[in-house]
Design a protein around this nucleic acid. Sequence first.
DNA 1: ATTAGGG
DNA 2: CCCTAAT
Length: 523
Amino acid sequence: MVLQKRLEYGFNGYKVPPTPRAPRSARKRASKSWKKNEDHNNNRMCAFDLLATVAGELLHEGDKPNQEENKAFKTEEKDCDQGSCNKSFFLSEIISKAPVSDSGPTSGITVSDFSQKAPSAPKSVEICKIEDINNKEMTNEVPTNGKPPLVNNLDSNVNLVIRDDDENSCGCTQNNKTFGPPSRIGDRRIRRLLASKQWKNCPKFNDDYRNKKSFYKHQRSLRDYPFKKRKLYQFDNPSNSNEDGSSLGPTSQDPAFQTQDSHVKLKIKSFRVPEFFIEIPETATVSSLKRTVMEAVTAIFSGELHVGVMLRGKRIRDDDKTLLQTGICHDNKLDALGFTLEPNKFQDRYVVSPPGTPKSLTRYSNEVVVIQHDDAPVTNSRNITETGGVGVDSRALVAVPASNSGGGLAVRKSKHAEVAQRRIRRPFSVSEVEALVEAVEKLGTGRWRDVKLRAFDDAKHRTYVDLKDKWKTLVHTARISPQQRRGEPVPQELLDRVLTAHGYWSYHQAKNQFKQTEICRLL
DNA sequence: ATTAGGG
DNA sequence: CCCTAAT
Protein backbone atom coordinates (compact mmCIF):
# COMPACT_ATOMS: atom_id res chain seq x y z
CA MET A 1 0.00 0.00 0.00
CA VAL A 2 1.13 3.38 -0.86
CA LEU A 3 0.13 4.70 2.46
CA GLN A 4 2.20 2.23 4.38
CA LYS A 5 5.22 3.01 2.37
CA ARG A 6 4.79 6.60 3.08
CA LEU A 7 4.40 5.97 6.73
CA GLU A 8 7.49 3.92 6.93
CA TYR A 9 9.39 6.59 5.28
CA GLY A 10 8.12 8.92 7.87
CA PHE A 11 9.20 6.70 10.72
CA ASN A 12 12.73 6.64 9.62
CA GLY A 13 12.86 10.28 8.93
CA TYR A 14 11.75 11.57 12.27
CA LYS A 15 13.06 11.48 15.71
CA VAL A 16 11.33 9.27 18.21
CA PRO A 17 10.16 11.14 21.25
CA PRO A 18 11.99 9.82 24.26
CA THR A 19 9.19 9.76 26.77
CA PRO A 20 5.73 8.75 25.67
CA ARG A 21 3.93 10.65 28.31
CA ALA A 22 6.46 12.84 29.94
CA PRO A 23 5.41 16.25 31.14
CA ARG A 24 1.84 17.29 30.83
CA SER A 25 2.96 20.59 29.49
CA ALA A 26 4.82 18.85 26.74
CA ARG A 27 1.76 16.91 25.79
CA LYS A 28 -0.18 20.08 25.59
CA ARG A 29 2.41 21.55 23.35
CA ALA A 30 2.28 18.56 21.15
CA SER A 31 -1.40 18.81 20.75
CA LYS A 32 -1.07 22.41 19.74
CA SER A 33 1.41 21.57 17.08
CA TRP A 34 -1.02 19.12 15.63
CA LYS A 35 -3.60 21.78 15.34
CA LYS A 36 -1.20 23.79 13.28
CA ASN A 37 -0.67 20.98 10.89
CA GLU A 38 -4.31 20.45 10.35
CA ASP A 39 -4.31 22.62 7.29
CA HIS A 40 -1.67 20.58 5.61
CA ASN A 41 -4.00 17.74 5.36
CA ASN A 42 -4.76 16.65 1.87
CA ASN A 43 -5.25 12.99 2.26
CA ARG A 44 -8.40 11.72 0.62
CA MET A 45 -8.65 8.48 2.44
CA CYS A 46 -11.47 7.98 4.82
CA ALA A 47 -10.13 8.38 8.28
CA PHE A 48 -11.32 5.06 9.52
CA ASP A 49 -10.07 3.11 6.57
CA LEU A 50 -6.75 4.62 7.23
CA LEU A 51 -6.92 3.85 10.87
CA ALA A 52 -7.83 0.30 10.19
CA THR A 53 -4.92 -0.06 7.87
CA VAL A 54 -2.57 1.52 10.29
CA ALA A 55 -3.87 -0.38 13.22
CA GLY A 56 -3.32 -3.55 11.36
CA GLU A 57 0.17 -2.52 10.60
CA LEU A 58 0.87 -1.57 14.15
CA LEU A 59 -0.47 -4.85 15.24
CA HIS A 60 1.93 -6.62 13.01
CA GLU A 61 4.75 -4.53 14.26
CA GLY A 62 3.84 -5.38 17.78
CA ASP A 63 3.73 -9.07 17.14
CA LYS A 64 6.81 -9.40 15.10
CA PRO A 65 9.24 -9.13 17.95
CA ASN A 66 7.35 -11.90 19.57
CA GLN A 67 8.68 -14.43 17.24
CA GLU A 68 11.90 -12.93 16.11
CA GLU A 69 13.62 -10.37 18.16
CA ASN A 70 12.86 -11.80 21.49
CA LYS A 71 13.43 -15.45 21.33
CA ALA A 72 15.80 -15.00 24.16
CA PHE A 73 12.98 -14.17 26.47
CA LYS A 74 10.94 -17.20 25.76
CA THR A 75 10.16 -19.30 28.74
CA GLU A 76 7.54 -21.72 29.70
CA GLU A 77 4.58 -20.68 31.67
CA LYS A 78 2.01 -22.65 33.49
CA ASP A 79 -1.57 -21.72 33.85
CA CYS A 80 -3.12 -23.82 36.47
CA ASP A 81 -6.74 -23.95 37.22
CA GLN A 82 -7.02 -25.42 40.59
CA GLY A 83 -10.54 -24.42 41.20
CA SER A 84 -11.54 -27.99 40.96
CA CYS A 85 -8.48 -29.77 42.19
CA ASN A 86 -7.95 -27.77 45.29
CA LYS A 87 -7.34 -30.17 48.04
CA SER A 88 -8.74 -27.99 50.74
CA PHE A 89 -12.44 -28.05 50.90
CA PHE A 90 -15.47 -28.21 52.99
CA LEU A 91 -17.54 -31.26 52.85
CA SER A 92 -21.02 -30.11 53.09
CA GLU A 93 -24.53 -31.20 52.73
CA ILE A 94 -27.83 -29.54 52.38
CA ILE A 95 -30.00 -30.80 55.12
CA SER A 96 -33.27 -29.26 54.40
CA LYS A 97 -35.08 -26.22 53.32
CA ALA A 98 -36.54 -24.50 56.27
CA PRO A 99 -38.96 -21.64 56.44
CA VAL A 100 -37.49 -18.33 57.37
CA SER A 101 -39.35 -18.27 60.59
CA ASP A 102 -36.82 -20.12 62.69
CA SER A 103 -34.64 -17.67 64.41
CA GLY A 104 -31.40 -18.54 62.78
CA PRO A 105 -28.42 -16.41 62.04
CA THR A 106 -28.88 -13.62 59.61
CA SER A 107 -26.69 -15.21 57.04
CA GLY A 108 -29.35 -17.71 56.29
CA ILE A 109 -26.89 -20.53 56.46
CA THR A 110 -26.43 -22.62 59.48
CA VAL A 111 -23.12 -24.18 60.04
CA SER A 112 -22.71 -26.90 62.52
CA ASP A 113 -20.67 -29.90 63.47
CA PHE A 114 -17.33 -28.40 62.78
CA SER A 115 -15.63 -30.94 64.85
CA GLN A 116 -16.88 -34.04 63.19
CA LYS A 117 -14.42 -35.95 61.19
CA ALA A 118 -15.21 -36.94 57.68
CA PRO A 119 -13.38 -38.56 54.80
CA SER A 120 -11.29 -35.50 54.41
CA ALA A 121 -10.09 -35.01 57.88
CA PRO A 122 -8.66 -31.74 58.98
CA LYS A 123 -5.04 -31.41 58.26
CA SER A 124 -3.01 -31.33 61.35
CA VAL A 125 -1.26 -28.15 62.08
CA GLU A 126 2.37 -28.36 61.36
CA ILE A 127 4.52 -26.76 63.89
CA CYS A 128 8.07 -26.03 63.14
CA LYS A 129 10.72 -23.56 63.88
CA ILE A 130 11.06 -20.60 61.67
CA GLU A 131 14.48 -21.67 60.49
CA ASP A 132 12.98 -24.75 59.00
CA ILE A 133 10.64 -22.82 56.89
CA ASN A 134 13.20 -21.72 54.40
CA ASN A 135 14.18 -25.26 53.74
CA LYS A 136 10.69 -26.49 53.49
CA GLU A 137 9.70 -23.73 51.23
CA MET A 138 11.65 -25.08 48.36
CA THR A 139 9.51 -28.13 48.20
CA ASN A 140 6.17 -26.80 49.24
CA GLU A 141 4.12 -25.63 46.39
CA VAL A 142 1.35 -23.35 47.35
CA PRO A 143 -1.75 -24.01 45.34
CA THR A 144 -2.94 -21.16 43.26
CA ASN A 145 -6.40 -20.10 42.50
CA GLY A 146 -8.22 -21.36 39.54
CA LYS A 147 -8.46 -18.60 37.04
CA PRO A 148 -10.04 -18.00 33.72
CA PRO A 149 -7.70 -18.20 30.80
CA LEU A 150 -5.47 -15.23 30.49
CA VAL A 151 -6.15 -14.49 26.91
CA ASN A 152 -9.83 -14.27 27.46
CA ASN A 153 -9.25 -12.16 30.44
CA LEU A 154 -7.46 -9.64 28.39
CA ASP A 155 -10.10 -9.25 25.84
CA SER A 156 -13.05 -7.33 27.03
CA ASN A 157 -15.14 -8.80 24.31
CA VAL A 158 -15.01 -12.24 25.73
CA ASN A 159 -14.64 -11.22 29.28
CA LEU A 160 -18.10 -12.32 30.08
CA VAL A 161 -18.02 -15.59 28.29
CA ILE A 162 -18.76 -18.36 30.67
CA ARG A 163 -16.25 -21.06 30.39
CA ASP A 164 -17.04 -24.62 31.07
CA ASP A 165 -13.98 -26.31 29.85
CA ASP A 166 -11.78 -25.47 32.77
CA GLU A 167 -14.16 -26.52 35.39
CA ASN A 168 -13.39 -30.13 35.50
CA SER A 169 -9.79 -30.27 34.61
CA CYS A 170 -6.87 -29.49 36.73
CA GLY A 171 -4.24 -30.12 34.18
CA CYS A 172 -1.78 -27.39 33.51
CA THR A 173 -1.61 -25.90 30.10
CA GLN A 174 1.58 -24.66 28.66
CA ASN A 175 1.80 -21.30 27.11
CA ASN A 176 4.67 -19.71 25.41
CA LYS A 177 5.74 -16.65 27.17
CA THR A 178 7.35 -13.97 25.19
CA PHE A 179 7.44 -10.29 25.09
CA GLY A 180 4.58 -8.55 23.53
CA PRO A 181 0.91 -9.21 23.53
CA PRO A 182 -0.39 -12.36 21.96
CA SER A 183 -2.10 -11.86 18.69
CA ARG A 184 -5.45 -12.93 19.99
CA ILE A 185 -5.83 -9.77 21.90
CA GLY A 186 -5.20 -7.89 18.75
CA ASP A 187 -8.51 -6.23 18.46
CA ARG A 188 -8.24 -4.95 21.94
CA ARG A 189 -4.94 -3.47 21.06
CA ILE A 190 -6.50 -1.79 18.12
CA ARG A 191 -9.23 -0.45 20.29
CA ARG A 192 -6.66 0.83 22.64
CA LEU A 193 -4.85 2.48 19.84
CA LEU A 194 -7.98 4.06 18.56
CA ALA A 195 -9.04 5.19 21.95
CA SER A 196 -5.66 6.56 22.75
CA LYS A 197 -5.40 10.11 23.84
CA GLN A 198 -3.08 10.70 20.97
CA TRP A 199 -5.93 10.14 18.62
CA LYS A 200 -8.19 12.33 20.55
CA ASN A 201 -5.78 15.12 20.09
CA CYS A 202 -5.98 14.60 16.42
CA PRO A 203 -8.69 16.91 15.16
CA LYS A 204 -9.34 14.88 12.08
CA PHE A 205 -9.92 11.80 14.08
CA ASN A 206 -11.98 13.38 16.71
CA ASP A 207 -15.40 13.30 15.13
CA ASP A 208 -15.17 9.70 14.22
CA TYR A 209 -13.92 8.91 17.62
CA ARG A 210 -16.84 10.60 19.24
CA ASN A 211 -19.20 8.53 17.19
CA LYS A 212 -17.56 5.43 18.43
CA LYS A 213 -17.36 6.59 21.96
CA SER A 214 -20.65 5.22 23.16
CA PHE A 215 -19.62 1.88 21.81
CA TYR A 216 -16.48 1.83 23.86
CA LYS A 217 -18.33 3.04 26.85
CA HIS A 218 -20.69 0.18 26.54
CA GLN A 219 -17.84 -2.23 26.33
CA ARG A 220 -16.40 -0.85 29.48
CA SER A 221 -19.63 -1.13 31.31
CA LEU A 222 -19.66 -4.81 30.60
CA ARG A 223 -16.45 -5.35 32.40
CA ASP A 224 -16.54 -6.03 36.02
CA TYR A 225 -13.95 -3.97 37.70
CA PRO A 226 -11.77 -5.89 40.02
CA PHE A 227 -11.87 -3.70 43.03
CA LYS A 228 -13.46 -0.60 44.35
CA LYS A 229 -11.81 1.71 46.67
CA ARG A 230 -13.37 1.28 50.02
CA LYS A 231 -15.38 4.26 50.99
CA LEU A 232 -15.04 5.27 54.55
CA TYR A 233 -18.18 7.06 55.42
CA GLN A 234 -21.02 4.81 54.54
CA PHE A 235 -23.29 5.19 57.47
CA ASP A 236 -26.33 5.08 55.36
CA ASN A 237 -25.59 1.77 53.87
CA PRO A 238 -24.85 -0.82 56.50
CA SER A 239 -25.27 -3.61 54.04
CA ASN A 240 -22.13 -2.43 52.37
CA SER A 241 -20.04 -2.84 55.41
CA ASN A 242 -19.36 -6.45 54.75
CA GLU A 243 -16.34 -6.19 52.66
CA ASP A 244 -15.60 -9.60 51.40
CA GLY A 245 -18.99 -11.13 51.29
CA SER A 246 -18.75 -12.92 54.54
CA SER A 247 -22.42 -13.45 54.41
CA LEU A 248 -23.20 -16.18 51.98
CA GLY A 249 -26.16 -15.36 49.89
CA PRO A 250 -28.96 -12.91 50.40
CA THR A 251 -29.21 -11.35 53.76
CA SER A 252 -32.31 -11.70 55.74
CA GLN A 253 -32.13 -8.02 56.44
CA ASP A 254 -33.51 -7.61 53.03
CA PRO A 255 -37.24 -7.26 53.53
CA ALA A 256 -37.93 -8.98 50.29
CA PHE A 257 -36.36 -12.11 51.59
CA GLN A 258 -37.88 -11.87 54.96
CA THR A 259 -41.26 -12.56 53.59
CA GLN A 260 -40.73 -14.68 50.53
CA ASP A 261 -37.55 -16.61 50.85
CA SER A 262 -36.90 -19.94 52.35
CA HIS A 263 -33.70 -20.62 54.10
CA VAL A 264 -31.27 -23.29 53.22
CA LYS A 265 -29.73 -25.23 56.03
CA LEU A 266 -26.27 -26.50 55.49
CA LYS A 267 -24.16 -28.82 57.46
CA ILE A 268 -20.48 -28.61 56.89
CA LYS A 269 -19.14 -31.93 57.93
CA SER A 270 -15.50 -31.18 57.87
CA PHE A 271 -13.05 -28.73 56.60
CA ARG A 272 -9.44 -28.44 55.85
CA VAL A 273 -7.18 -25.53 56.31
CA PRO A 274 -4.31 -24.92 53.95
CA GLU A 275 -0.90 -25.53 55.32
CA PHE A 276 0.45 -22.86 57.55
CA PHE A 277 3.23 -22.40 59.98
CA ILE A 278 3.40 -21.26 63.50
CA GLU A 279 6.31 -20.02 65.45
CA ILE A 280 6.18 -20.34 69.16
CA PRO A 281 8.77 -20.56 71.91
CA GLU A 282 9.55 -23.96 73.28
CA THR A 283 8.69 -22.67 76.68
CA ALA A 284 5.22 -21.64 75.72
CA THR A 285 2.37 -23.39 77.39
CA VAL A 286 -0.02 -25.65 75.65
CA SER A 287 -2.77 -23.21 76.21
CA SER A 288 -0.84 -20.47 74.52
CA LEU A 289 -0.17 -22.85 71.70
CA LYS A 290 -3.87 -23.40 71.39
CA ARG A 291 -4.43 -19.73 71.40
CA THR A 292 -1.80 -19.22 68.77
CA VAL A 293 -3.25 -21.83 66.53
CA MET A 294 -6.64 -20.30 66.97
CA GLU A 295 -5.25 -16.94 66.07
CA ALA A 296 -3.69 -18.32 62.98
CA VAL A 297 -6.80 -20.09 61.90
CA THR A 298 -8.89 -17.06 62.56
CA ALA A 299 -6.50 -14.95 60.60
CA ILE A 300 -6.47 -17.37 57.75
CA PHE A 301 -10.19 -17.58 57.63
CA SER A 302 -10.81 -13.91 57.69
CA GLY A 303 -7.72 -12.90 55.84
CA GLU A 304 -6.52 -13.37 52.38
CA LEU A 305 -8.33 -16.52 51.74
CA HIS A 306 -11.04 -16.97 49.24
CA VAL A 307 -13.97 -19.24 49.55
CA GLY A 308 -15.15 -20.86 46.41
CA VAL A 309 -18.52 -22.43 45.97
CA MET A 310 -18.89 -25.55 43.95
CA LEU A 311 -22.14 -27.04 42.87
CA ARG A 312 -22.14 -30.51 41.41
CA GLY A 313 -18.47 -30.22 40.70
CA LYS A 314 -18.78 -26.93 38.93
CA ARG A 315 -17.56 -23.76 40.32
CA ILE A 316 -20.06 -20.99 40.75
CA ARG A 317 -18.38 -17.81 39.70
CA ASP A 318 -21.16 -15.33 39.85
CA ASP A 319 -21.20 -13.96 43.35
CA ASP A 320 -24.33 -12.01 42.75
CA LYS A 321 -26.58 -14.89 41.95
CA THR A 322 -28.93 -16.00 44.62
CA LEU A 323 -28.85 -19.49 45.95
CA LEU A 324 -32.15 -20.00 44.28
CA GLN A 325 -30.79 -18.99 40.91
CA THR A 326 -27.78 -21.20 41.17
CA GLY A 327 -29.88 -24.15 42.14
CA ILE A 328 -28.21 -24.64 45.45
CA CYS A 329 -31.61 -24.88 47.03
CA HIS A 330 -32.86 -27.52 44.70
CA ASP A 331 -30.22 -30.12 44.80
CA ASN A 332 -30.40 -32.00 48.01
CA LYS A 333 -27.93 -34.62 47.10
CA LEU A 334 -25.02 -35.20 49.34
CA ASP A 335 -21.90 -33.48 48.18
CA ALA A 336 -23.79 -31.44 45.68
CA LEU A 337 -22.47 -28.35 47.29
CA GLY A 338 -18.86 -27.81 48.17
CA PHE A 339 -16.71 -25.04 49.44
CA THR A 340 -13.11 -24.60 48.58
CA LEU A 341 -10.50 -22.63 50.36
CA GLU A 342 -8.21 -20.85 48.04
CA PRO A 343 -5.12 -19.47 49.59
CA ASN A 344 -3.61 -16.39 48.19
CA LYS A 345 -1.33 -17.19 45.35
CA PHE A 346 1.59 -15.55 46.99
CA GLN A 347 0.78 -16.44 50.49
CA ASP A 348 3.62 -18.70 51.19
CA ARG A 349 2.88 -19.19 54.79
CA TYR A 350 1.26 -17.77 57.80
CA VAL A 351 3.18 -17.13 60.90
CA VAL A 352 1.57 -15.92 63.99
CA SER A 353 3.43 -13.97 66.55
CA PRO A 354 4.11 -15.62 69.86
CA PRO A 355 1.79 -14.73 72.63
CA GLY A 356 2.89 -11.65 74.39
CA THR A 357 3.95 -9.88 71.30
CA PRO A 358 2.74 -6.37 71.63
CA LYS A 359 -0.14 -5.63 69.40
CA SER A 360 0.05 -1.96 69.81
CA LEU A 361 2.17 -1.71 66.73
CA THR A 362 -0.76 -2.57 64.61
CA ARG A 363 -2.77 -0.01 62.87
CA TYR A 364 -6.31 -0.91 63.25
CA SER A 365 -8.16 -1.87 60.20
CA ASN A 366 -11.35 -3.64 59.58
CA GLU A 367 -9.71 -6.66 58.20
CA VAL A 368 -7.67 -9.28 59.80
CA VAL A 369 -4.07 -9.06 58.90
CA VAL A 370 -1.97 -12.11 58.82
CA ILE A 371 1.47 -12.14 60.14
CA GLN A 372 3.72 -12.97 57.33
CA HIS A 373 7.42 -13.31 57.44
CA ASP A 374 9.49 -13.00 54.40
CA ASP A 375 12.39 -15.25 53.95
CA ALA A 376 14.74 -12.35 54.02
CA PRO A 377 17.41 -12.95 56.58
CA VAL A 378 16.81 -10.90 59.62
CA THR A 379 19.77 -8.66 59.85
CA ASN A 380 19.03 -6.79 63.00
CA SER A 381 17.86 -7.63 66.43
CA ARG A 382 14.42 -6.25 65.93
CA ASN A 383 13.15 -9.71 65.54
CA ILE A 384 10.49 -11.35 67.53
CA THR A 385 11.63 -11.68 71.06
CA GLU A 386 10.35 -13.92 73.69
CA THR A 387 9.82 -11.10 76.02
CA GLY A 388 7.59 -9.55 73.49
CA GLY A 389 9.42 -6.41 74.28
CA VAL A 390 10.62 -3.87 71.86
CA GLY A 391 10.76 -5.62 68.65
CA VAL A 392 8.51 -7.15 66.21
CA ASP A 393 9.92 -7.63 62.82
CA SER A 394 8.79 -4.72 60.80
CA ARG A 395 7.32 -7.07 58.26
CA ALA A 396 5.20 -8.80 60.82
CA LEU A 397 1.68 -7.71 61.16
CA VAL A 398 -0.28 -8.60 64.17
CA ALA A 399 -3.67 -10.00 63.66
CA VAL A 400 -6.54 -7.90 64.81
CA PRO A 401 -9.84 -9.65 65.01
CA ALA A 402 -12.22 -7.83 62.82
CA SER A 403 -15.09 -8.51 65.09
CA ASN A 404 -13.76 -6.72 68.08
CA SER A 405 -14.82 -3.36 66.88
CA GLY A 406 -18.18 -4.23 65.61
CA GLY A 407 -17.39 -5.34 62.13
CA GLY A 408 -15.48 -2.50 60.69
CA LEU A 409 -17.13 0.13 62.75
CA ALA A 410 -13.81 1.35 63.90
CA VAL A 411 -12.89 2.46 60.48
CA ARG A 412 -16.03 4.34 59.96
CA LYS A 413 -15.73 6.15 63.20
CA SER A 414 -16.66 9.67 62.56
CA LYS A 415 -17.70 11.56 59.57
CA HIS A 416 -15.27 14.27 60.47
CA ALA A 417 -12.33 12.27 61.54
CA GLU A 418 -10.38 11.86 58.38
CA VAL A 419 -9.07 8.53 59.38
CA ALA A 420 -8.19 7.30 55.98
CA GLN A 421 -5.43 5.19 57.36
CA ARG A 422 -2.36 4.74 55.33
CA ARG A 423 -2.42 1.19 54.20
CA ILE A 424 -0.09 -1.15 55.90
CA ARG A 425 3.20 -1.65 54.19
CA ARG A 426 3.49 -4.97 52.48
CA PRO A 427 6.82 -5.56 50.89
CA PHE A 428 6.71 -7.55 47.72
CA SER A 429 8.00 -11.04 48.05
CA VAL A 430 10.34 -12.46 45.51
CA SER A 431 7.61 -14.59 44.08
CA GLU A 432 5.46 -11.55 43.65
CA VAL A 433 8.24 -9.70 41.94
CA GLU A 434 8.70 -12.66 39.71
CA ALA A 435 5.05 -12.63 38.77
CA LEU A 436 5.12 -8.92 38.17
CA VAL A 437 8.14 -9.14 35.94
CA GLU A 438 6.61 -11.91 33.96
CA ALA A 439 3.40 -10.02 33.43
CA VAL A 440 5.11 -6.83 32.41
CA GLU A 441 7.36 -8.68 30.06
CA LYS A 442 4.32 -9.84 28.27
CA LEU A 443 1.94 -6.92 28.61
CA GLY A 444 4.16 -3.93 28.77
CA THR A 445 4.43 -1.05 31.17
CA GLY A 446 1.25 0.75 30.36
CA ARG A 447 -1.38 -1.79 31.15
CA TRP A 448 -1.41 -2.17 34.86
CA ARG A 449 -4.98 -3.23 35.03
CA ASP A 450 -4.20 -6.14 32.80
CA VAL A 451 -1.12 -6.91 34.79
CA LYS A 452 -3.23 -6.95 37.89
CA LEU A 453 -5.79 -9.22 36.34
CA ARG A 454 -3.23 -11.50 34.94
CA ALA A 455 -0.83 -11.96 37.75
CA PHE A 456 -2.37 -10.51 40.89
CA ASP A 457 -6.03 -11.13 40.47
CA ASP A 458 -6.27 -12.94 43.72
CA ALA A 459 -4.05 -10.63 45.68
CA LYS A 460 -6.67 -8.23 46.87
CA HIS A 461 -4.24 -5.94 48.57
CA ARG A 462 -2.24 -5.29 45.44
CA THR A 463 -3.88 -2.66 43.33
CA TYR A 464 -2.77 -1.83 39.87
CA VAL A 465 -1.33 1.34 41.25
CA ASP A 466 0.71 -0.73 43.65
CA LEU A 467 1.98 -2.79 40.79
CA LYS A 468 2.88 0.24 38.81
CA ASP A 469 4.65 1.69 41.82
CA LYS A 470 6.48 -1.52 42.43
CA TRP A 471 7.64 -1.62 38.88
CA LYS A 472 8.90 1.91 39.29
CA THR A 473 10.93 0.99 42.31
CA LEU A 474 12.09 -2.19 40.67
CA VAL A 475 13.49 -0.24 37.78
CA HIS A 476 15.16 2.04 40.24
CA THR A 477 16.48 -0.83 42.26
CA ALA A 478 17.87 -2.46 39.19
CA ARG A 479 19.77 0.66 38.31
CA ILE A 480 21.44 1.31 41.60
CA SER A 481 24.30 -0.65 43.01
CA PRO A 482 23.50 -3.70 45.07
CA GLN A 483 25.00 -2.01 48.10
CA GLN A 484 22.39 0.69 48.01
CA ARG A 485 19.50 -1.69 47.87
CA ARG A 486 17.45 -2.36 50.92
CA GLY A 487 14.92 -4.85 52.02
CA GLU A 488 14.60 -8.36 50.87
CA PRO A 489 17.10 -8.76 48.08
CA VAL A 490 15.65 -9.31 44.67
CA PRO A 491 17.57 -11.85 42.64
CA GLN A 492 19.79 -10.18 40.12
CA GLU A 493 18.30 -12.30 37.42
CA LEU A 494 14.94 -10.68 38.02
CA LEU A 495 16.40 -7.23 38.08
CA ASP A 496 18.06 -7.88 34.79
CA ARG A 497 14.77 -8.88 33.34
CA VAL A 498 13.25 -5.73 34.73
CA LEU A 499 15.73 -3.57 32.90
CA THR A 500 15.40 -5.54 29.72
CA ALA A 501 11.65 -5.44 29.75
CA HIS A 502 11.62 -1.82 30.70
CA GLY A 503 13.91 -0.97 27.86
CA TYR A 504 11.96 -3.03 25.44
CA TRP A 505 8.64 -1.54 26.30
CA SER A 506 9.69 2.02 26.58
CA TYR A 507 11.13 1.73 23.12
CA HIS A 508 8.07 0.14 21.64
CA GLN A 509 5.70 2.39 23.44
CA ALA A 510 7.53 5.43 22.17
CA LYS A 511 7.62 3.96 18.72
CA ASN A 512 3.92 3.29 18.59
CA GLN A 513 3.08 6.61 20.05
CA PHE A 514 5.21 8.24 17.47
CA LYS A 515 3.48 6.39 14.72
CA GLN A 516 0.18 7.66 15.89
CA THR A 517 1.28 11.22 15.88
CA GLU A 518 2.75 10.75 12.44
CA ILE A 519 -0.40 9.18 11.11
CA CYS A 520 -2.36 12.02 12.50
CA ARG A 521 -0.13 14.44 10.71
CA LEU A 522 -1.07 12.79 7.50
CA LEU A 523 -4.77 12.92 8.07
C1' DA B 1 -12.03 3.19 36.36
C1' DT B 2 -7.27 3.62 34.67
C1' DT B 3 -2.97 5.66 33.73
C1' DA B 4 1.06 8.48 34.66
C1' DG B 5 3.90 10.91 37.65
C1' DG B 6 5.20 13.53 41.52
C1' DG B 7 5.42 13.52 46.74
C1' DC C 1 2.18 4.12 49.74
C1' DC C 2 -0.48 8.41 48.84
C1' DC C 3 -2.45 12.03 46.02
C1' DT C 4 -3.87 14.10 41.80
C1' DA C 5 -4.51 15.35 37.10
C1' DA C 6 -6.02 13.75 32.99
C1' DT C 7 -8.13 10.31 30.50
